[in-house]
Amino acid sequence: METSSEERPIIEIDDFSFSYNRGETDTLKNISVSCPEKKVTAFIGPSGCGKSTLLRSLNRINDLVDTACITNGQIRIMGQDINTPEVDPIELRKNVGMVFQKYNPFPKSIYDNVAYGLNLQGKQKQSDLDDAVEKSLRGAALWDEVKDRLKDSALGLSGGQQQRLCIARTIAVNPKIILMDEPCSALDPIATAHVEQLINTLKQEYTIVIVTHSMQQATRISDNTAFFYLGELIEFSPTKELFSNPKNKRTEDYVSGRFG
């Protein structure tokens, strides 16, 4: 698969097939995609093509489905096959955080939401915790808006603020990779712009994989884009190329809104 740098990509999806029904049918079929470090990779494609399934495979959330199984290939993160018995999914998820479409802060204070993951990691000094919370909220471009109401309930924030809080919660535990599944689909254009701007700054430190239904969003924020169709990878290219000069006819039909 194509990657720009000689460096080893942080995520290597290698001929990966996945089934929700014990291998009877494959929802993902022989997918190979490499995500370079500190770049934004976008997954696009029609509803049901398997974008979320692939994203959830990257931090093994699919393990929660009993009948789910990998039917071919592997996924390596930082060179390590993530589906071997040695890999603890909880540990994996510390490195691979996730932000969901429906922002889901806990019904707790803003502070506690961000501190949550850190507390799970064991007892922390209060001052360290305070620092980490501030750093994460700053990182999520939310600090100035909430610094005077850290003890207020997170549910009192606007939708866009709640989503950025979820991003702050994710980056608090210092992951390497952030997965985002349609993070802006419930947000208005201004809140969307804030989240996009946040993604632009986050990619200096983190590798981001984002599922989006907005072609414009993919062109604005991602470096590489993968187009999926019926569980197959149709095209994986630098974003500019994929949207200006797609190699595959099916990609062009999809991104330009034509009947396939």
Binding site: M215, Q216, T219, F243, S244, N245, P246, E252, V255, S256, G257
Partner: peptide, 10 residues
Amino acid sequence: KYKPVASDLR
């Protein structure tokens, strides 16, 4: 209106 891409944009 349509934010064309690919050959439409060109």
